[in-house]
Amino acid sequence: MMRETPASLMTTDSPNTSTPLLQVRNLRTSFNTPDGKITAVAGVSFDVNHGETLGLVGESGCGKSVSALSIMRLVPNPPGVIEDGEVIFEGVDLLSVSNKEMQGVRGAGIGMIFQEPMSSLNPVLTIGRQITEPLEEHLGLGRGAAEKRAAELLEMVGIADSRQRLSDHPHQLSGGQRQRVMIAIALSCEPKLLIADEATTALDVTIQAQILELMKNLTSQLGTALLIITHNLGIIARYADRLNVMYAGEIRESGTAEQVYLRPGHPYTIGLLNSVPRLDRPASERLDPIEGEIPDPANLPTGCAFRPRCRWATAECEIAEPVLEQVGDRQMVACYESSTVVESVEAVWK
């Protein structure tokens, strides 16, 4: 199946695999609230390469979901405003294209799956109609061809009796099946990038495993890049090639999964890894959690936002915010003390 890129989205040099598929540059998104302006995403930059799986991990309010919504230009406005930055997808800055062109990108260029499939699916339309709609819209297929393709897609995501299922409504499906339908819709136009925002968080453990394996297998078959957004460190460890760790609106550490999990350089990453009870380690008597609370986004600490909870904080951390700096081959850490941190952690973990 071929996908026609709208002429206006074509660039002079067609994107090749050496330039990243998606380049997010200095993205800033804020919300105007009665308590004042909240900067949910405060200058985030990262790349997604063709066909790779990138993880975006962090706790609630860290800005991971708002980053994804900003890429898709789905931030509700008002109160949300994308203030600054560039989202370059296949060579085009999505923040400067028209709404109509953006509609072409959503679905055909970038697919997205959310946590709660029930609220993303239209309850009064059949499953079939919801899959055929983007096929007709983006690919210009006729009704008959679209229905045939929809049945194939349902089969691809592991839904049995796909022909009959097309006439079902969302409420007739289980949570896992709904998420399978969402994947079928998101992949229907063979996008280059699939964004999964806490897509398996609401599912039971055994169903979560099914959906994750399905998502990973399909994206690698189709060559689709996958951006997994989750708070679950285990999911990222299993599926992501690289990851970004976010805290209070910014990326604090990035690198390959091996680097970040086995040789973390940011105190927040270390704190996260020490907070979760882990089946791969002996059951310990006590966890070693990060102290304190996630800061109020309307009232962030000065300097490094993690400073009040950090064991390694010095006077310097109070003055200016550290920026991401290269610490290894592909690893970046935003911390003044990262060399001390790495040393002391290696001493403890060995």
Partner: peptide
């Protein structure tokens, strides 16, 4: 089914 935060193990 439970993924652990250890890429090598996983």
């Amino acid at each position: 089914a439970i993924p652990t935060p250890n890429p090598v193990h996983e």
